[in-house]
Amino acid sequence: MTELPVLHRSPLLDRPGAVAGEGLAAGVAIHYGDPMREQRVLEEGLAVVDLSHRSVLTVSGPDRLSWLHSLTTQHLVDLGVRESREALILTPKGHVEHSLHLVDDGKTTWITTEPGDGDGLREWLDRMRFMLRVEVADVTADWGVLGEPHGAESAPGEPLAWRDPWPDLVGDTTAYGPVEDHPGTRWSWREVIVPRASLEEAVGDRPLAGLWAFEALRIAAWRPRFGAETDHRTIVHEVDWLRTAVHLHKGCYRGQETVARVHNLGRPPRRLVFLHVDGSGHALPSAGAEVRAGERVVGHVTSIARHHTDGPIALAVVKRNTDPELVLDVEGVSAAQTVIVSP
C-alpha cells in the first residue's frame, strides 16, 4: 500500500478532543482525549469509530458477482442482497495482494479496503474486466465508512453495511482449542457505508471512539488486518485467514494452488501469535519491532496497543518452528505468546 494523502479530512476531526492521525491514519482521529474510556464504551456497543479514511469502490453490471467470484478467494456468485463477505486477491504465487470487504445491494457490489490501497485495487480490477459487463468506480470522494459494533443502534433506516464474519469462526482452523473459547467470538463489528456529506448526521449523539480504541479491541480478538499483519510474502494460512476470507471448495482463482498445497500439508513458513507484553515500563515497543527467542530473531511485531483491562498486547508474525512455550523478547521487554496458528 502507498501512504495516503489527506484528500478527505473527516468533519469529525472538529469534535472536541479529536487528535488527528498521521500516515495511513491521516484524515481521521486516533482518539478524542480519553483512549481507555473510548475502548470501554466501544466494547459496550455504544460508540462509533470514524473509518472514513478507508477507500470505497463500487462494481456494477450484471456480471459483477460472477466476475468477482472468479478473481478472489471467496465464493460470491450466490451473494444475496445486503449480504456481505470478506475476500482476498492473491498473486500468482499465493501471496496476499488486496483485502476486500464486500456487500451487495442488489444492483451494485460495494467494496471497502484499507487506506492507500484503493487506487491499486481499482487499477487492477479495471485491467481484468476484458469484455464482461462490469464497471469499476472509486467513490471514496462521495462515500465514507463508520465502524460500530454489530447490532448497535445506527442511523435511521437500515444502513448498507459490511458485517465482519470473524466471530462466526467457520471451521476450526486454529490451534487454540474449542472454537467457542476463541476471543474472536467476542468481536462483533460492521462497517456502515454512508454519504460522506452525512457523516456527522450518521453519528448523531453517539460517543466517538478513535482508531486506538478500535485497534486495541481488534488485537484482543486476534483479528488480522491487511497491511498490518501482512507483507509482500504473506500467505493466508499464516494469519488464520482461512476461516473467513477463503472458500476452500470453489473453482480456480489466482493463487489457489498455493492455498491448496499449504492447506493440505499444514506447514506455512510463518505463523501469527498473540503476545502479552510486560507492562512494567512506560513505553510500548513499536509495530515492526524484532521479536527474539534468546539472541535469535524469529519474527516481528505487526500490531500493538494498550488494552484497558489486559494492558500491553500485540500480534506478531514469527517463524513456524518457534517454540510456542518460549517467553519471547521485544525490544528488551518480555512477551508471553499464545498460539493462534498451529506450528
Rank of each mutant, 00 (worst) to 15 (best):
R306D: 13
T2E: 10
R320P: 10
L57V: 06
G210Y: 12
V41D: 06
R40D: 11
G116D: 06
G23S: 05
V139W: 13
V136L: 00
M131T: 15
L160P: 04
V341N: 05
I340E: 08
D310Y: 09
A283D: 15
D50A: 09
P269Y: 11
S55I: 02
D240M: 03
E43T: 00
D50L: 02
V136M: 02
T258W: 01
A202V: 08
L284S: 11
L211G: 02
P207Q: 14
G184V: 03
S303E: 11
W162G: 00
W241M: 04
Q256C: 14
S10Y: 09
P268L: 13
S70F: 03
D168Q: 02
S66R: 15
H307L: 03
D78P: 00
V81S: 06
R196G: 09
A155N: 08
P207R: 12
S286Q: 13
V203H: 14
A26V: 05
A87Q: 01
S286P: 00
R320M: 12
R186M: 13
V49T: 01
S188D: 08
L57R: 09
W187H: 05
D240F: 03
L160R: 13
L88W: 04
G299H: 11
T73Q: 01
H53E: 09
V192L: 10
G210T: 09
A213L: 09
L211D: 00
A293Q: 11
P343M: 11
H232K: 09
L265D: 03
S52T: 08
N321E: 12
A216G: 13
L51A: 01
H307R: 10
L284K: 06
E83C: 10
H95F: 00
M36H: 12
T91F: 00
V49C: 02
V317L: 15
E153A: 15
R82P: 00
R218T: 02
V59A: 08
Y253T: 02
L46D: 09
G171N: 03
